[in-house]
């Protein structure tokens, strides 16, 4: 039960933190867009066809399932739930494979 609680608390903290960051960045992006400052501040750096702020927001959203998968793999391995750990590892492998495809 304690291991379960630890996994839940860790997952909760990570999702909450990233979600707060995403919402804050999105609100910042909207404020900058409305005040026409985004172009001056962020458009000079472009990644995958997006400005830095949009890229960071999307990257963080994508990081929510990735980071909780990593936590689950670590915690399942520690608690000897090998089937769950391997299954989650396979899921993470698939996600990273898709990310690699985008980068390449």
């Amino acid at each position: 039960m304690n291991e379960n609680n630890k996994l839940e608390n860790l997952t909760l903290t990570v999702i909450k933190t990233i979600l707060i960051l995403v919402i804050s960045l999105t609100i910042t992006s909207v404020i900058l867009e409305v005040s026409f400052s985004q172009g001056i501040l962020f458009d000079s750096i472009e990644i995958s066809g997006m400005n830095l702020l949009d890229f960071t927001t999307i990257f963080l959203i994508f990081m929510i399932p990735v980071s909780r998968s990593i936590i689950m793999i670590i915690e399942f391995s520690k608690s000897d739930n090998q089937i769950n750990a391997v299954s989650e590892l396979a899921v993470l492998g698939i996600i990273l494979g898709l990310v690699t495809r985008i980068i390449i």
Binding site: V22, I23, T26, I27, S29, V30, E33, G49, M50, D54, T57, I58, I61, F62, I64, P65, V66, R68, S69, V91, I94, I95, L98, V99, R101, I102
Partner: peptide, 28 residues
């Protein structure tokens, strides 16, 4: 659902079907 939608999002993003301009209003 977080993982299934991430996979879908990555594939659609890779094929240019995610309009970044719409992401902010949709998230909020």
């Amino acid at each position: 659902i977080g993982v299934t939608s991430l996979v879908g999002a990555l594939i659609f993003f890779n094929n240019g079907f995610i309009d970044v301009a719409l992401v902010s209003p949709i998230i909020l």
